[in-house]
């Protein structure tokens, strides 16, 4: 069986901040409805969030969007602090949260520089009309345990299984493997795939974009979020192509 190392590319240049990924994630992963009070207490659960930044002065204000979710770090700060081994790295390069092991110390969330881990402060509740839309492939997390983005591992498992049924190995985006956020993105700002497969679109693109500038060749747009912390994330961000900034540079 081929080795898999799942990763994601986020092209910030393409992100329009529409929040479709957020909605898709909430409904795919049985995330409880976040009410205003939850946000005010900073206890809202959103496995993927769009961070919004304002740039410039009125009237030339521009909004910048950065989708942030669990970076599935290779050297994840959340892992060594778990006293019960409820979060660990599996062979597919995923940072895994085992719900039934978690005892809710919240050390991992405190240690996560991306704020991508969320604690269930309440028993999850849905209005009666939404009870039947719960995804049966995803555990409903009860009160007192930690949760976070899984790269929609239920979809990875299902598509791998369906490929095995036909005697094949799963390929990127094959059989609905991509996470819900990737499928929902209208501008294809998110790309999901196997970083260990040298033929996959994502591994080629990330290699190309992460190149440092050398001589006359400009560097790629790729970077890792909070790179200096040495967490070695499996998510590559591609920075915004800013025409006005370039002009500014040339003429300024």
């Amino acid at each position: 069986m081929a080795e898999n190392k799942w990763g994601m590319i986020v092209d910030i240049d393409k992100c329009i901040g529409c929040q479709a990924c957020v909605v898709a994630c909430q409904s795919e992963n049985n995330i409880p409805i976040n009410e205003e009070g939850h946000f005010n207490q900073r206890r809202a659960i959103e496995w993927i969030r769009i961070e919004r930044y304002w740039e410039g002065e009125f009237p030339n204000v521009r909004a910048r969007f950065v989708p942030v979710f669990c970076q599935q770090c290779d050297d994840a700060p959340c892992e060594p602090v778990c006293p019960v081994y409820a979060t660990y790295h599996n062979s597919e390069g995923l940072n895994v949260q085992v719900y039934n092991r978690c005892i809710g110390t919240r050390f991992c969330a405190n240690n996560c520089p991306y704020q991508a881990r969320f604690f269930n402060f309440w028993e999850p509740e849905w209005p009666e009309s939404l009870k039947n839309q719960l995804n049966p492939d995803v555990t409903v997390r009860s009160r007192g345990i930690m949760e976070k983005c899984t790269f929609c591992i239920q979809r990875i498992r299902r598509s791998t299984r369906e490929a095995a049924k036909d005697g094949q190995e799963v390929e990127d985006g094959d059989r609905g493997m991509s996470p819900a956020c990737v499928n929902a993105c209208p501008t294809h700002a998110l790309t999901f795939g196997n970083l260990d497969d040298s033929d996959s679109a994502i591994s080629k693109q990330s290699k190309e974009e992460l190149k440092q500038p050398a001589g006359s060749r400009p560097g790629g747009r790729g970077y890792h979020m909070l790179e200096h912390l040495g967490t070695h994330p499996n998510v590559v961000y591609l920075k915004k192509v800013d025409k006005t900034a370039e002009e500014h540079e040339v003429h300024g």
Partner: peptide, 8 residues
């Protein structure tokens, strides 16, 4: 026997 074989 990885946890995520069954637990996710």
């Amino acid at each position: 026997t990885d946890c995520t074989t069954c637990h996710y």
